[in-house]
Amino acid sequence: MAMQEPTFLVLTALAGPPLHGYAIMRAAAELPGGMPLRAGTLYAALDRLTAEGLVEVAGEEQLGGGRVRRSYRLTGSGATALRAETARRRDLLAVATDRLAALRPRPA
């Protein structure tokens, strides 16, 4: 099944060093073709992805006052899922590119 866009962006943002929540939001917005994620959307995705074992908590910094800053990273399964989705999108892109190239402009 195709991955939803926010999920794809979060996994792509985490395909590198571990990032904390705000850094993931910023990275998702700065990706080419990316989009701003609300914190609610990000944490809904993180909850689902950690439950599915695609993302894990890499570290936790205690900030005092009942606040923490957690960093998240991709697991092996997460990298596999991202590779599979990337391949699916690449194949789709190739087909779309070919079809567009073969498309002849209609006479006016």
Binding site: Y43, L46, R67, R69
Partner: peptide, 20 residues
């Protein structure tokens, strides 16, 4: 359940975003 699991981290993220 969400506040206990993610609340302290989500609060930090919201404050980081508000500060930036």
């Amino acid at each position: 359940w969400h506040r206990h699991r993610y609340g302290p981290d989500l609060l930090t993220t919201l404050l980081d975003a508000a500060e930036a």
